[in-house]
């Protein structure tokens, strides 16, 4: 699976949520109304990805998120539960996460299939796996994969929902990648060598052992650990792989689409030939993403 283009939005949120309407207009070329932050962020990230590399019309859209459209979900629940009123129609419609895909398809002229997939941990990896399946089977020639997560106010409540300490820097991000299958004839940025979910640490160690047979491998590879990897595991992974640790800089704020930020910066900064990104989840599983520059 090849990466043809990428585009991003990421912002640390401190006092207030920055307005997005003008950025949406820049990304799509026209004002877009009746959408909340989640869809706005999706349009901004996807627009930046496709600016220089328009996607073929039959491109599939794979949108993912750790928590989906929290803003609209909270609005609808407050309207129904707190005020005892039916939800507003526009809010209700946008609680269907795939409605974001409608706006993406409409504004970027995409007629392929569209999917919204979600996984609390490693959402980008889940969408990449799904896209890889469709690209490998030949049912698609190209896929637009994006991972979006928004902030809601007040931030104290948001941090509680994220289950992070009160002093954690939080933010929102939208990270998009235009992918093709391996037969793509044009110029590509990188190849996604592996995107896999391993059941436990033993399986991870076994997999790593098969990847680092060549003495040159560690020197050409940087290891980036996801935000759920604790320090002992981080040190163990560095020891097992022999790779230099690498992290996006400045360190991104906490949000579920964090991996997209790391991959985006890797593609932009090119600190090594290969990126090995590993993150864990509370079930003890490991998500591995391995990407090599073209």
């Amino acid at each position: 699976m090849k990466i043809i283009a990428h585009g991003h939005y990421a912002e640390k949120i401190e006092d207030a949520l920055p307005p997005l309407k003008e950025l949406v207009k820049e990304a799509t070329g026209e004002p877009v109304r009746r959408v909340g932050r989640f869809i706005q962020l999706a349009l901004i990230g996807a627009g930046r990805c496709l600016t220089a590399n328009p996607a073929p019309k039959n491109t599939g859209v794979y949108l993912t998120s750790g928590r989906g459209d929290l803003e609209i979900t909270l609005d609808v629940l407050e309207q129904m539960v707190e005020h005892g009123l039916p939800p507003k129609p526009l809010s209700f419609i946008n609680t269907v996460s795939n409605s974001a895909c409608f706006y993406l398809a409409k504004h970027f002229g995409l007629h392929g299939r569209s999917h919204f997939v979600t996984r609390r941990h490693a959402p980008l990896e889940s969408a990449l796996q799904l896209a890889a399946l469709d690209l490998d089977h030949g049912s698609l020639q190209s896929a637009l994969v994006g991972s979006v997560d928004i902030c809601t106010m007040p931030l104290a409540d948001h941090r509680t929902r994220l289950c992070v300490p009160a002093d954690t820097a939080v933010g929102e991000g939208s990270h998009w990648f235009l992918l093709s299958n391996d037969t793509y004839p044009g110029t590509t940025l990188a190849t996604i060598e592996a995107v896999i979910l391993l059941p436990d640490k033993d399986a991870l160690q076994q997999w790593l052992a098969t990847q680092f047979l060549s003495p040159q491998s560690p020197a050409n590879t940087v290891l980036a650990c996801g935000q759920h990897i604790d320090t002992p595991t981080r040190l163990l992974l560095q020891h097992l792989t022999g790779c230099s640790a690498w992290a996006a800089s400045p360190e991104p704020p906490w949000y579920d689409s964090h991996c997209g930020n790391t991959l985006g910066q890797f593609l932009q900064l090119r600190p090594a030939r290969t990126l090995l990104h590993i993150d864990s989840d509370p079930a003890g599983r490991f998500n591995v993403l391995q990407v090599s520059l073209s």
């Binding site: 009746r34 009123l85 039916p86 507003k88 129609p89 526009l90 419609i93």
Partner: peptide, 13 residues
């Protein structure tokens, strides 16, 4: 029509 529904709901509220 979606705007119409939205306006109707807001007028009711």
């Amino acid at each position: 029509s979606l705007d119409a529904l939205q306006i109707s709901m807001a007028v009711k509220n």
